[in-house]
């Protein structure tokens, strides 16, 4: 297996490269980041962006993808090029990923599927974070649950994200007991809270809740990207005999049925559009999702700031990115309302 590591850099050298982010999240967070390795399962649009963001920040990476590079993937995977069409995605990308940051260690991981707890544990071993780019893995919901359980056992943070042309949904599981501090104020006035604890439910529990419960106050029904993600999961896992094709009509009819069974509904135009763009995620949507989730991973690993508990949904049509709660247990405390701030001297 190819591994790309450079000679061990001096801390003074890394301090220079990471200066602008150390000024933001501090030296301790930076050390934790540099000591952490992320497993990227499926180098799809979301994971290409996440991989770029996290390797730049100083994380080491393992990338695993069972697919071969095809022409369409060049629309989002800038780590590969036309010459690598036909090669394994991991092999074609690893060198350019490693080049992003000579201080990060980047390698290719196993692409075999997990059929039981033991293989899942083996896969996850050695990683502080595991991110599944759902449409670009072979895995079913069952396999994701196995991988998530292995993460809960080893203490690794788990993310599953599905990105499409009309938005994305992501599940986060940072474990039954995630500890973090909250910082308020800036510069000399910065104060750090005492350690706080947040409890995340498992992926199995999160995807098992009634869809209609996954909404914030005053929402008539859950945000569209969340519903589309759940529909995609069901559609992908339906019995093979029915998996003849995936044409527009098929998906729309299927989705309508599943939604109606839960007393929910989405516009046919939304469903028809989703049938066309599911699994087709242009780079800029992946960039938005990969940026937001990259930040969540930094929060999770550094233990600074409350990470989203436990769903993020991005709707490209409205531009809204929402934090949601999908869990069988009660939400601890409602997030405090805040007004938009102009962060910058624009």
């Amino acid at each position: 297996m190819a591994t790309f590591t450079s000679t061990k850099p001096s801390e003074e050298e890394t301090n220079k490269v990471y200066d602008r982010q150390i000024r933001l999240w501090g030296a301790d967070a930076q050390r934790r980041i540099q000591a952490s390795r992320v497993l990227f399962l499926g180098l799809g649009p979301a994971n290409v962006e996440l991989c770029k963001n996290l390797v730049l920040a100083g994380f080491s990476a393992t990338v695993a993808d069972h697919r071969k590079v095809d022409a369409a993937s060049l629309g989002y995977n800038f780590f590969a090029d036309a010459e690598s069409i036909g090669k394994g995605v991991g092999e074609a990308s690893v060198e350019n990923i490693a080049e992003l940051n000579p201080f990060a260690d980047v390698k290719i991981g196993s692409t075999s599927s997990c059929s039981d707890a033991a293989t899942a544990e083996k896969l996850v071993e050695g990683h502080g974070v595991v991110i599944v780019d759902v449409p670009c893995t072979r895995g079913s919901e069952e396999e994701r649950k196995l991988i998530n359980e292995a993460c809960r056992k080893s203490g690794a943070k788990f993310l599953a994200v599905r990105c499409s042309g009309d938005g994305a949904a992501a599940f986060l599981d940072l474990g039954a007991e995630h500890t973090y501090v909250v910082e308020t104020g800036e510069g000399a006035k910065k104060t750090t809270s005492a350690p706080q604890k947040a409890s995340y439910c498992s992926y199995a529990d999160a995807v098992g809740v009634a869809w209609d419960s996954v909404k914030n106050k005053k929402m008539a029904q859950p945000p569209t990207p969340f519903l589309l993600d759940r529909l995609d999961a069901l559609f992908a896992d339906r019995p093979t005999s029915k998996k003849r094709s995936r044409d527009e009509g098929d998906f729309v009819a299927f989705a309508r049925r599943e939604l109606a069974a839960r007393s929910l509904g989405l516009d046919d135009t939304i469903l028809a559009r989703h049938a066309r763009v599911a699994g087709k995620c242009p780079a800029h949507i992946a960039a938005v999702v990969g940026g937001v989730l990259g930040q969540e991973v930094v929060k999770a690993v550094s233990g600074r700031g409350a990470p989203t508990n436990n769903v993020f949904a991005f709707d490209a049509a409205t531009g809204s990115g929402t934090a949601l709660f999908a869990s069988p247990v009660e939400r601890a405390a409602a997030p405090k309302a805040a007004v938009p701030v102009d962060a910058i001297e624009l």
Binding site: N216, F314, T322, P340
Partner: peptide
């Protein structure tokens, strides 16, 4: 649209990306 990127969920919709 005017979209704000927030560090934490903001407003009654709990938005990280908040278009107005």
């Amino acid at each position: 649209r005017y979209t704000y990127c927030q560090r934490f969920p903001t407003g009654r919709k709990c938005e990280l990306l908040q278009p107005v």
